[in-house]
């Protein structure tokens, strides 16, 4: 009964995804396509949840449905709303598409079945991760343990990538400035409702940040949620006030500080003759050291993600709107 239900849900969600993709190819109104992408993100996160990938679903929810929509709208503000469609069909495209599709289908035939216990991915590192997480790190969420401790190098690299993405956007677009006439109209209901909502979002962000060892979540998701709170403030009360709460000039420094916290945590274990990012050296008790290391590293990731996302939002929304005639 339950297995059938899961199958039905999977099939329905995948059908939704295909329908959304076809519709967004057909529709030329870029705004409508942005809306459809929002729905696409909702559906794919549901699919991730159904596959028991909770942390991935969490990230998709935080980034895909909220921040990407805001960013796309900010970009859409700077260009025209309708796609310039050129009706040009090339016959060469058809065989290429068919060949690629056939190759992909042929490749899919070699995949192991979903949930197959003999699949290669369940045999090399996964059993070690599951065993060692209980022995050495002792936190319930294995994903956080793998992300922050076993694969600490990779996460460090990702944090640096996020930092450099923020730096690249800053170099290309600049920080922008706020025009007076772009301020939102005064809407009393929104003002009253949004104030407690922001408090709730910020507290929820902190909860996700520090609860990442026990449940879904972690630094990355918490950073996005925290930034969303400030973006909400900026949307409702105007960007002039938002830039007074968190000045744009402080954000690049915070972003660098996040990466620095991560790096210094690694260097501390290097000082006491252990490998880079080996948290056992942080405390006399190895398990306690792991807990402390994961906490510090997650804090660094959260800070870097938060400031980078807010920085990108500022640089997009601070651009002057160009009116195309």
């Amino acid at each position: 009964m339950i297995a059938n239900l899961e199958l039905v849900i999977d099939i329905c969600l995948l059908a939704f995804l295909i329908m959304i993709v076809f519709a967004s190819i057909k529709i030329t109104d870029l705004f409508a396509v942005t809306m459809l992408f929002g729905i696409f993100s909702f559906v794919s996160a549901l699919l991730f949840l159904d596959l028991d990938a909770v942390d991935v679903a969490f990230t998709e929810a935080a980034v895909g449905a909220g921040f990407t929509t805001v960013l796309m709208l900010s970009a859409l503000r700077l260009t025209t709303r309708f796609e310039n469609v050129k009706h040009r069909h090339s016959l060469l495209g058809l065989p290429i598409v068919i060949l690629t599709g056939a190759a992909l289908l042929y490749g899919v035939a070699d995949f192991p079945n979903m949930g197959d216990a003999n699949a290669p991915i369940h045999h090399h590192l996964a059993p070690d991760f599951i065993r060692l997480t209980q022995q050495k790190i002792d936190i319930p969420n294995i994903v956080t343990a793998v992300l922050a401790s076993f694969r600490g190098y990779d996460t460090f690299g990702e944090t640096v990538v996020i930092f450099s993405a923020g730096a690249a956007v800053l170099m290309l677009l600049g920080m922008g400035h706020v025009e007076r006439k772009q301020e939102p109209e005064k809407n009393l209901i929104l003002w009253v409702v949004v104030k407690p909502m922001i408090a709730l979002i910020l507290i929820f962000g902190l909860y996700v940040q520090f609860h990442g060892d026990f449940g879904a979540g972690g630094g990355f998701q918490a950073g996005v949620i925290f930034a969303s709170g400030f973006i909400l403030y900026s949307l409702v009360f105007g960007e002039t006030y938002a830039r007074k709460v968190i000045p744009a000039t402080i954000l690049p420094r915070l972003s660098a500080l996040g990466v620095l916290i991560y790096g210094v945590t690694g260097l501390m274990s290097l000082i006491s003759n252990k490998p880079f990012l080996d948290y056992n050296a942080l405390s006399s008790n190895p398990v306690g050291g792991q807990h402390l290391g994961i906490l510090l590293v997650e804090a660094g990731v959260g800070l870097a993600v938060f400031s980078t996302i807010l920085l990108i939002y500022y640089s997009f929304s601070g651009r002057e709107v160009i009116h195309y005639e």
Binding site: G38, F42, A45, F58, A61, A62, A65, G66, T69, V70, M197, L200, I201, F204, V208, Q221, I225, S228, I231, L232, L235
Partner: peptide, 9 residues
């Protein structure tokens, strides 16, 4: 989280 994100979006 989804309820909050939906509101912001």
């Amino acid at each position: 989280m989804y309820a909050l994100v939906n509101f912001i979006g």
